[in-house]
Every structure is written in C-alpha cells, then in structure tokens.
Design a protein around this nucleic acid. Structure first.
Lengths: 182, 182
DNA sequence: TCTCCACGTGTCAATACTGACATGTGGAGA
DNA sequence: TCTCCACATGTCAGTATTGACACGTGGAGA
C-alpha cells in the first residue's frame, strides 16, 4: 500500500490541502502511477497526522486544512524512495492486461485492437510532445522536476506505439507464411 | 475489476487448473499487468462457473479441476477486448509512483535513485533480449502469441532506461547552470 | 519403504478501496 | 441581491484483496 508515501511525496514538494491532493491524483499521477479518491485520501491524512508524519500547517476558508510533512515524514519518504523496490511491488494496469490477452483473440480481432492501440498512443504522444515543446527547457524550481513525469509518459506512449506496430508486422508475417489458415 | 477477464483470457488460450492459473500470475502477467493470488483466483473461478462463462472440463488427481471457457465466456472476453478501454482503467504501479516522487528528493538522492533505475532496467532488458534471441522468430501456435508480452516488457525496460539517462542529464544541466546551489 | 516436496484447494479475519450519499461555504457574475 | 458552482470535507455500506492458517496427495529419489 503506497498511498501514504504518495501523499508524503506530494506534500514534500509543497504543502497542500486534501482537496488539492485529490486534484493531483486526477492528473498524470493518477493516470500513470497510482490512483486514489478523496474517500481514501482524507482518512489517510488523518492517520499520517496521528503518526506525526504530516501536520496541519494552516486552516483556511471553508474548513480547509493545509498539510505539510514533518521532519519525521521527510525521513520516512527518503528511506522509502532510496530503498530497493523489492518484490512487493503491486502492479495493476488494465491496458497492459489487455495486451497480454491479445493472444486469446483470433488474428483479425487482434489486428483491430492493435491498430486502435497504435492510433491511440500516437495521438497521446503527439499531445505530450506539444506540451513539452511549449514548456521550454527543464529547470528545477519550487515545483520540483515535475516535467520528469511528463517525459516519462511520453516515452511510455512511444514505446507502446512502437510495440503495436511491431506486433502488427508479426501478424502480417505469420499470415504470409501460413495464408488463409484453416 | 479485471480479474475475471484475465482468467477468461488465460483459459481461452488453453484450459488450466486453478493452480496453473496461479502460476501464470506469478510470471510476467503478474509482474507487468495484473497480480492475483490463489485466494482470489479460486473463488473467482467459482463465480465464473456459476455464470456459465467457464466450466470444469476435467477432474484430475489431488482434487484438481481443469477449467475451460464456454462459448459464452469466449464471447464475453471478445466483447471486453474489442471495447474501448474507457476511463475506468485502474492503474497502480509502485515503480512509476517512485519516479513521480523523485521531485521530492534533493538532487544527490534523486541521482542515486536514477542511477539504480538505469542499471536495473539495462540488466532486465539485456536478459529479455537474450531470451528473445534464443527463442527465434515469432510464430503463432497453440500457445498463442505469447512472445508479444516479452517484447512488450523489453521495450518497456528500454524506454525506462532511456528516460532515466535523460533525467540524469537534466540533473547535470541544472547543476551546471546553478552550481553549488545554496 | 520412507521422506520430502511440489501439487492442489480451501477458509477466514483484517484491511483497502470504491461509489453513493451528505453537507456546508466563499466568491464571481447576472 | 441572488444564484450557481467550485471549493472542501466527510460517512458508510458493499466489495475486493491480502496474509495467515489449514489440509490432503502423488511421485521422485534415497
């Protein structure tokens, strides 16, 4: 369960309210890395506060509470990030699962799915590339190296795109070698 | 929740027992796509059987039951694979989360983590490459296109490797521009 | 023959997570 | 002034998942 570490990490970059944290999970973070809704975030913040890893830094309008990591929390985060991942690494990705199960479809159906993947990833990659080019060079700052994540997403899409094209070529080759199978 | 579809997909390639399915989740499938233990697989098989999506095809030694997909099950799987992913796509990946949170570390720590990632992915990619080259050309068969998954993993590792090297270069550039920060 | 281990399936309590429901507020703009 | 909406936090029942525990068996090799 990595949610507490995700929260510590986000708060280590800068203090935020539960609401802002929820928003963060709706963006790239939730899309590529780890998703969570406010119904799990708020209770988790409470637990982290109890453990002294975060603290309420400021209470604002509409009952909002801005949390910040404590020194203890920062130590915990650092220890976690610097420790090797280990086998407990949970992975859950429906997209990837679909790719693994492609073998269960007949070639015509598999081709359709692969073509959709190729088109989709090309589109997403183009979008990210444009955002990157508009943003200019990477530079450190109060927001941290947030662009690392965007670049990661871009390379991810490019890799999947390349794979889909390769897989389509494999299908072609198999069909040529064994035409009108059955 | 994609577990039922994962099971249908595995059984669509060939009939298996709950035990064999469990083993499948311990391999590449569980590593990259979706993990599940036997304690969730057995009950789920029961549910799928109740719904008529799979059936016990054979009862063997030691109380083993070999399941096969029914026609209904195959239809359900096909419908799911051919339908667009949608927004409900759950993603949970501790590795990727760690990369997103790198921004929360100071440059020296971030560098250490990135170097470990670069080394690790290079190692994994080399291993997969060797397996691929020994296996020879991709061809369809009773096992389906299982090599699609391996190639996917390989390209994934290569992409992450490239990203880590790029990120390290960004750190260097930032440090040169703003040496001995603070 | 005996032992060990992979094979094979299961229960159950504790925990994690989602989705539906609930409630109130500050500020922008009509 | 009024309305609307994003802001902001919360509960709770139902479901999914994990980890610990449990139990029995066939076959390979000593």
């Amino acid at each position: 369960m990595s949610l507490p570490h995700a929260l510590l990490g986000l708060l280590a970059v800068r203090p935020r309210s539960g609401y802002e944290l929820t928003k963060a999970f709706e963006g790239d973070l939730g899309r590529y890395a780890w998703q969570a809704g406010h119904t799990s975030i708020y209770p988790e913040l409470g637990r982290l506060a109890e453990q002294g890893l975060v603290e309420v830094m400021h209470e604002g309008a509409r009952g909002s509470r801005t949390y910040a990591v404590t020194e203890t929390g920062r130590d915990e985060l650092r220890t976690w990030l610097l420790s090797p991942p280990g086998r407990g690494a949970r992975v859950r990705n429906e997209q990837v699962l679909r790719m693994f199960l492609l073998s269960a479809l007949d070639p015509a159906d598999a081709r359709a799915v692969l073509e959709r993947i190729a088109a989709g990833t090309a589109h997403e990659a183009a979008e990210l590339r444009q955002i990157r080019d508009e943003a200019g060079p990477v530079r450190p700052g109060p927001d941290g190296f947030g662009q690392l994540a965007a670049e990661y997403g871009l390379r991810q899409y490019e890799a999947v795109h390349g794979w889909a094209l390769w897989a389509l070529a494999q299908l072609d080759a198999a069909e040529t070698a064994e035409p009108a199978h059955r």
